[in-house]
Amino acid sequence: MKIGGVYQLPVARDRAYSMLQDPAILARCIPGCGGLNRTAGNEYNMQMKLALASISGLFEGKVRITEQNPPESFRLAVEGKGKIGFMKGDGLLRLVDKDGGTEVSYVGDVQVGGTIAAVGQRLLDTTAKMMIKRFFDQLAECAGQ
């Protein structure tokens, strides 16, 4: 599934970029994330709890940041595995100055497998968008602090 979108952050580009590389901030913004543990340079392990409607599941996940080109772009890969299936997201994020803040745009791919893929069909797109929106909303909140 292809995904893409644009978000506006109320901070300068350098700051936006560094926030997006900061494991503490990422941990606060990734929905359900219980903290990031560095395993290698830009690789982290995490535990993620998905809770949506009555659906809930624990995922063992990984976050990886690559192709860093500060403050313009980088690639973010997030994956999680759990009893109810797995998900994998990989996207290129680009940052540009806009209206005194930073516009972050992303294009990527989301892959979902296992039970969640089969039952969530009708709702996958909506749900993926919502999770990404929550991520950026939270990021905007962090930026405001």
Partner: peptide, 14 residues
């Protein structure tokens, strides 16, 4: 009608 199908698949585990 919404909860039980999810429980059957263990997507919901109340």
């Amino acid at each position: 009608m919404s909860l039980i199908p999810l429980m059957k698949l263990r997507l919901a585990t109340p």
